[in-house]
Amino acid sequence: MSSSPDNLLQVKIWRGCADGAYEDYVVPQQDNQTVLDVVTYIQRNLDAALAYRFACRVGVCGSCAMTVNGRPRWTCRTHVSRVAKNGMLEIAPLQNLPVIRDLVTDMTPFFEKWQEARGRFVPGEGPKDTLARVPPEQKERAAASAAIECINCGVCYSACDVVAWRDDYLGPAALNRAWAAYNDVRDGDRVGVLKAVSTGTGCNNCHTHQSCAEHCPVALNPTFSIAGLKRATLKASVKGELSK
């Protein structure tokens, strides 16, 4: 773990709420160092009250996402060497969410929209004491599987241009979850998902910029999930299923 004194990172960190400002810190660079380690170093050694959020530290919980040099990222698994520009890091809270303090955002709107998009399972009529037989190659199961491994970190929501331009848009993560729910053959109200996402704030607002897919740390592609919802809602709408 070598570190030499001339190996220093110049770090700017957002302090305060929405009307805050950047403050400068100097942090010794290490061979193995993630952006979260840099933030931790500052809190432990330079600025005790620096507010930030993290939990699992290994890319599972999706708590530590921040804006690093202008891009939303999970910080626990972002190696400094991959993002530092000439030894500089600029770390800010996620965009498109209210800032609580420093690097911490309020994720409530994100999860409220998750519910609004009916991003949850509704039990079907099937027997409760057996497990549904669903072959992995089944078309719906494959679609659900492709979308399901979301860690709800908010990176896509923060990267989404449509959310930035109209804050009532449900956003990529919620719609991606809705697509997985719609493709769950065990679900008791699949049309309900389509009704939830076909409102004025729903899937049809997506302009296919693909910023969500570009930045998703676990390589999901919400744009394609949303495209699927667009097609499904279109079909259902033509058939008149959405107004029933």
Partner: peptide, 11 residues
């Protein structure tokens, strides 16, 4: 945007 507007625009 609603499915109706979407249909009209993509259509």
């Amino acid at each position: 945007m609603t499915p109706r507007l979407y249909l009209l625009q993509r259509g």
